[in-house]
Design a protein around this nucleic acid. Structure first.
Lengths: 333, 333
DNA sequence: AGATAAAATGATAGCGCAACCATTTTGACT
DNA sequence: AGTCAAAATGGTTGCGCTATCATTTTATCT
């Protein structure tokens, strides 16, 4: 069995030195036209592929960036990921991706594992890392971006938007529309959902007129089906009084909407529904669902760009970047 | 600036040799209780993280597996990915993931890039790789799994199901229900969609009674919105005659269903709708949509297990593994 | 043509780790 | 206590590549 070809094998075939082959692969413009063509031909002919481990070891550049998201199944992070992948491609980087299942402890382990790849940057979701995780990250000396939400004390860089403010705004939107018996449907209850809930409560507390609130939450993970169940729960708890629900995401909102049909409730006459994240389906169901949109793809892209321009050694405090959000008002409210 | 600690630094702190530290990390049971505790303490204290590149180079084991999917945004591959990640975790492997955007050429480049990581296994989606890609993969000598569809001449291992048969079956289902003017709505038109379409045509050709078919396809990528547009197109082409549509996936089917409401068509009385992939929403809309379910998560898991048990050098022909599919009949047909 | 700078190419060393083999320590037995 | 095997530990080397510096070739000028 002829083993995998290495630099020397290519060099022999092309009739040059190994280091020249290396240069053709990394700095093509430092090599004369003639040699480069010969080398490239040889590389292609014998199907040579550079050994990344050796390259990374010798050059101290791994060419990878590490990314941790809380859930692969949540389409929200999918959008962010797509942004990350699209940006990464231009920089000729590889992504190593971890899914921490919303658990800081799993995240800590993943951070240790991914740091072993000597990534040139690290993208994290959210801001509740463990202390040891923060220590490891800081010690690594690489640039780090925390994504999705805004933090007072980011590890390094931070880009996101205020889920609290969005919760306040969407709740005020319902109040302005005249709804007074507001329900909050929450699943998973990760930090961002909790911030939305806090915003919901704040808006209600600050409202000048009498109004009622019903909060129904579960730590189960979100799904369309669960949205229907939570709607039933909030109607039971409010004895049918609830006239508007703020769902912590669009999956729940869709499920709640489908459930209203079975319960024979008219939307928005009997009950208003709003969601969060502005998924495609929300705009296309009948009635279309009011939601909160944010630039997820762009956040992913921007995170990579931030990493690439950052020095990593720069310990100065960088102000968080607020990408904002937008309430998309539709027929359901 | 104190640079990143290495094995020797840990060894010094723990008062042992470097190789002993290495063993604590890789073969803990080859080290005495006492030393192991000391070393582990030292590792934690100074926040040592093993250099993966050096480890991979020295041991010739990279601990990564490469995965290429055609699209990050398609939830179908997301399910597969989740299966892959869940299985990979138990084997202490890392995934490096590429998105080839349904392009064999992009895939070829990605394969070359990912092979440079010396993966211990490779998971590909589908069976239409370029010749050079196949050459590189074969030369690499690592185990390879092609996923999702079945192939007559797999590169190495293969696990999936027959999209052609599924297309035949779902079309027969519509014919048995008495529908005779069948539409096919197709987007993207990747190989699997084409196989479903071929199945649709075959079923119609084999049907003993007179029936009509209308095929509307686009290479645009699939979305709910597009489903509505394609439904309009097929109704226009059939001059309103079409009484059933087979949508190449559930996104289109959902869009078509939403569109029927706007067009004032009753489902399934005026028109039947069936989809493909059995997404959660399909079961929960009114009426629920008939679809084709397949074990995507399990396929992902099984792919990893296959890689782990395979030798990689075994050049014998392995029979494809057919995971099958299931037609989930619902109110829309 | 000769001098000089600039570009192209090559030789050597070392990145951090684990495989391999050598050595020391421990424990079990007579 | 003495013998031997097994377990524990350490020293040396090389994985395949690129950084660094040294050397050769080419281009540019007077």
């Amino acid at each position: 069995m002829n083993k995998k070809p290495n630099l020397k094998d290519v060099a022999k075939v092309a009739g040059v030195s190994a280091i020249t082959v290396s240069r053709v692969l990394s700095n093509p413009d430092k090599v004369s036209e003639k040699l480069r063509a010969k080398v490239e031909q040889a590389v292609h002919d014998i199907g040579y592929i550079r050994n990344h481990a050796a390259s990374a070891l010798a050059s101290r550049r791994s060419g990878v960036i590490a990314v941790i998201i809380p859930s692969l199944s949540n389409i929200v992070f999918n959008d962010v990921l797509q942004g990350i992948y699209s940006a990464v491609k231009q920089h000729h980087l590889q992504v190593v991706l971890g899914d921490c299942h919303y658990s800081p402890l799993e995240e800590e382990k993943l951070i240790a594992t991914l740091l072993s790849q000597s990534p040139e940057g690290f993208i994290l979701t959210g801001t509740d890392q463990t202390d040891y995780a923060r220590k490891l990250l800081q010690q690594s000396g690489i640039p780090i971006v925390q994504l999705m939400e805004l933090s007072d004390c980011p590890i390094d860089m931070n880009i996101g938007f205020s889920h609290f403010n969005a919760g306040v705004d969407i709740t005020n939107h319902l109040l302005q529309k005249g709804y007074r018996k507001l329900g909050f449907l929450g699943a998973r209850m990760d930090t961002r959902t909790q911030q939305r809930l806090a915003g919901f409560k704040k808006a209600i507390a600050d409202f000048k007129q009498p109004c009622q609130s019903y909060v129904v939450t579960t730590t189960q993970s979100s799904s369309i089906r669960l949205g229907g169940q939570l709607l039933q729960a909030v109607m039971a708890e409010s004895q049918g009084q609830c006239d508007a629900v703020f769902c912590c995401n669009d999956d729940l909102a869709l499920g709640a909407l489908f459930e209203t049909k079975r319960m024979n409730l008219k939307v928005p006459a009997d009950i208003a529904i709003c969601g969060f994240n502005d998924l495609e389906a929300s705009a296309l169901v009948e009635p279309a669902i009011t939601s909160v949109a944010s630039p997820r793809f762009e956040m992913g892209q921007q995170a990579v760009e931030l990493l690439m321009t950052a020095s990593g050694q720069d310990k100065t405090h960088k102000p968080p970047i607020d990408v904002g959000y937008r309430i998309v008002e539709r027929a359901s409210t």
